[in-house]
């Protein structure tokens, strides 16, 4: 069996374990490559129809192409989509024009998610994070509990082995279910190529630049690249020395920015 097949089987297993164990769950969806891979895997896991809602946390700083992709997907995938915006924070004037990227990311992503958790009372959220993206994500569990305040108690994570996962939650708490933890950026692209998964065109070169990781437009930088095919992306990744999230300003705003963000609920 190829390693990619092993990864697919494992992700499907995780999806089904989660669905069997949690009363209500949802899947945040950012329209990026990992998110679209998750949709693909979820459809495989549940015979074509994803049995829980997808959540788009709209920061109001989304790339127009991502929103266009969202509309396309709504028409082409059978999905139940909830769009959430932290209106309160926007009304207060929190935005990239005036605030630092860590504050804005926290308010418009993590706090927005927390508001949705309070409203919909999900006890599990499926996320598309991967260990190779960031060194705090490298310490994650497949089933990773969050407190009632949406916080990650990273100093005291539960043990996890032999396919035994944390599925017990107290009211208000939730578990992050992370089927792509073992995948690398290269695995994602190999899988997209194998399966033919639709993705935004921004990952391919336009006028000599392309995006490797997508976020809010004011704080997401493209890379110099002439690659405009999937094969090209795979080959480029095999030799690159630049990290995937180098173009994401919130990660590098200060030492341990990701730890601070993630401890407070960021994915």
């Amino acid at each position: 069996m190829s390693y990619l097949q092993h990864l697919e089987d494992q992700a499907i297993y995780i999806f089904r374990e989660a669905f069997a164990n949690f009363k209500s769950m949802a899947m945040p969806w950012s329209m990026g490559k990992d998110s679209n891979t998750l949709i693909w895997l979820a459809k495989k896991a549940f015979a074509g129809k994803i049995p829980f809602p997808l959540v788009h946390i709209d920061t109001t700083y989304e790339f127009p192409e991502m929103l266009a992709f969202r509309e396309w997907a709504k028409k082409h995938y059978e999905i139940d989509l909830i769009v959430i915006v932290n209106e309160e924070a926007r009304k207060k004037g929190i935005g990239y024009e005036t605030h630092d990227p860590v504050t804005v990311t926290h308010e418009l992503k993590s706090a927005a998610l927390q508001q949705a958790l309070a409203k919909y009372k999900w006890d599990a959220l499926v996320t598309g994070i991967r260990r190779d993206e960031d060194s705090t994500r490298a310490k994650e569990r497949y089933f990773s509990p969050r407190t009632a305040d949406n916080e990650w108690e990273y100093r005291d994570q539960p043990p996890e082995f032999w396919g035994q996962f944390t599925t017990a939650v107290k009211p208000g708490e939730h578990v992050r279910v992370q089927p792509l933890l073992d995948w690398t950026e290269l695995d994602i692209w190999e899988y997209i190529r194998r399966e033919g998964i639709p993705i935004p065109k921004m990952y391919f070169s336009q006028q000599g630049r392309r995006y490797r990781s997508l976020g809010c437009w004011p704080i997401t930088k493209s890379i110099e690249s002439s690659v405009d095919t999937l094969e090209g992306i795979v080959e480029e990744l095999k030799v690159t020395k630049t990290s995937e999230r180098a173009g994401r300003a919130q990660d590098h705003h200060e030492r341990n920015a990701m730890q601070k963000l993630r401890a407070k609920g960021f994915m």
């Binding site: 396309w72 033919g196 639709p198 993705i199 065109k201």
Partner: peptide, 10 residues
């Protein structure tokens, strides 16, 4: 009339 990048299955 946006259509994303899409790849036929192998």
């Amino acid at each position: 009339d946006y259509i994303p990048a899409f790849f036929p299955k192998r």
